[in-house]
Design a binder for these strands. Structure first.
Length: 432
RNA sequence: UCCUCGAUAGCUCAACGGUAGAGCAUCCGGCUGUUAACCGGAGGGUUGCAGGUUCGAAUCCUGCUCGAGGAGCCA
């Protein structure tokens, strides 16, 4: 590893360095070749004059195929005409591995299906690299934020015997003759972990066999699920808004170049600072009625267009709280002051990106929880261990789940979550 | 599962009842500062599949397959 990284070229002006990368594009004027090299950190224009290299190297530069692996040695100089502001005057060109001449991803437009079929190669383009770098920073900043506040990472199982919320959307598999399912949420296990460790979080893949075909859905997606013992719903929401603003501000601080590559309007992200506005379910109903004239019967959940209506009334993410009991999961705790609603929140991202967080205070009363399990006709024997958590030292506790891909799509300003994950699992797509 | 739209060269598209074309990509040639470079030439097609209507179908009709956008459900 004796090569320089392209994003560091500014520090090597006047020096002779070697770049190790791939040929991204090439232009030629007969006596002078412009090789655009990418190395994963950026693009560099490498200028090769006929007199600067051997005739063999010059001929090689003329016939290099797109995505051929090459090492290029030369002198770095500032050059306003070059993309990135620096270029290399080439003195040596080495072919590491020639690419076949039929590289499918060109510099013209391609359709979605073709790009997804070639995802393994599409990943190499600057736009996709920018998204994956931002995804990395979002993951890292979520973990750092929680680690700095005394949280412990706990990994729940991926193979599970039952579901938190029904089994229709679960992937079933065989577990030595028993039915098992891929996890669609680690939450119930995280509640057990919170009773052991206090403040915990999980961060991993979850699976939903939903026949959903929208810009916000993946079959396999990543979620971070914090769970906190002795925290009430207000503590919970304060953590959520602190987390989301920290993540957004971290991306803004580190990734101006990537956000520019994506064409993201960063002024909208700069406003994302805690505290976030809060509206109750009832207030949201009224807001939708006033803005759109739609009357939603009390008790019904909001649809995607309703969420967009609510979110567009604010300039930063907005909490919607106090949903009707019947619209939400069995484990949520009813509001003691208003038992027909639960202590919960959905955090809606701006610009129509929809729900990125769902959280609640959990039901900590054994009898009331058993009642709700019966009402939902869930298999009681499967929840024996979960009920034990209320039997042995039950305390108020709260938690939430933040969807990674929706968060990435929103911060990057993408129109579909399929670009936010290296290899998207979509309805009817499991290749590559 | 439902609604809407679509499928033509490797890619993006045109031709809309009468001989399937363009740009890009590929290959060959030209050009000493190119910026998705440009200029000239070449190769490249059972028009998604199966039927039907017609003198004649990429084009009209039916069914199927696959894809896109959305609904429901969710993060």
């Amino acid at each position: 590893m004796d090569h320089a990284a392209i994003h560091d070229l500014g520090r090597h002006v006047g020096e002779t360095v070697t770049l190790a990368g791939w040929l991204y594009n090439k232009r030629s004027s007969g006596k002078i070749h412009f090789l655009i090299v990418r190395d994963g950190t950026g693009l560099c224009q490498c200028v090769m004059g006929r007199k600067d290299v051997t005739p063999e190297e010059f001929e090689l530069g003329d016939h290099l195929t797109q995505e051929s692996a090459i090492r290029v040695t030369g002198t770095v100089r500032a050059e306003p005409r070059a993309p990135g502001g620096y270029e290399m005057g080439v003195s040596k060109l080495e072919l590491v591995a020639e690419a076949a001449p039929d590289y499918p991803i060109t510099h013209k437009e391609h359709g979605v299906e073709f790009l997804m079929d070639n995802r393994h190669l599409w990943m190499r383009t600057p736009r996709q690299v920018a998204i994956l770098r931002i995804r990395h920073t979002i993951v890292e900043s979520i973990r750092t934020f929680l680690n700095d506040r005394g949280f412990t990472l706990v990994d729940p199982p991926i193979l599970t015997p039952s579901a938190a919320e029904g089994t229709t959307n679960l992937f079933e598999t065989d577990y030595f003759g028993e039915k098992a399912y891929l996890s669609q949420s680690g939450q119930l296990y995280m509640e057990a972990a919170a009773m052991a460790l206090g403040k915990v979080y999980s961060f991993g893949p979850t699976f939903r066999a939903e026949k959903s075909k929208t810009r916000r859905h993946l079959i396999e997606f990543w979620m971070c699920e914090p769970e906190m013992a002795y925290w009430n719903q207000d503590d919970n929401m304060r953590l959520q808004e602190g987390l989301v603003s920290h993540v957004v501000q971290t991306v803004l601080a580190r990734h101006q170049a990537e956000l520019k590559e994506l064409g993201r309007d960063t002024s909208l992200l700069e406003k994302v600072t805690a505290p976030f506005p809060r509206v109750t379910y009832d207030e949201a109903l009224k807001l939708i009625q006033e803005r759109e004239g739609r009357d939603i019967p009390w008790g019904e959940d909001f649809g995607a267009p309703d969420e967009t209506t609510i979110a567009s009334a604010f300039d930063r993410p907005v909490f919607v709280t106090h949903y009707p009991v019947q619209a939400k999961a069995f484990y949520m705790k009813p509001d003691p002051k208003r038992p027909e609603v639960v202590l919960c929140d959905d955090l809606l991202a701006p610009e129509g990106y929809g729900e990125i967080i769902g959280g609640s205070q959990r039901q900590d009363d054994l009898d009331l929880l058993e009642q709700r399990i019966k009402q939902h006709k869930l298999p009681e024997q499967a929840y024996g261990w979960y009920l034990d958590l209320r039997r042995y030292g039950s305390v108020p506790h709260s938690g939430f789940g933040i969807g990674l891909e929706r968060t990435v799509a929103w911060i990057c300003g993408l129109d579909h979550v399929r670009e936010t994950i290296p290899f998207a699992r979509l309805l009817n797509r499991i290749y590559p």
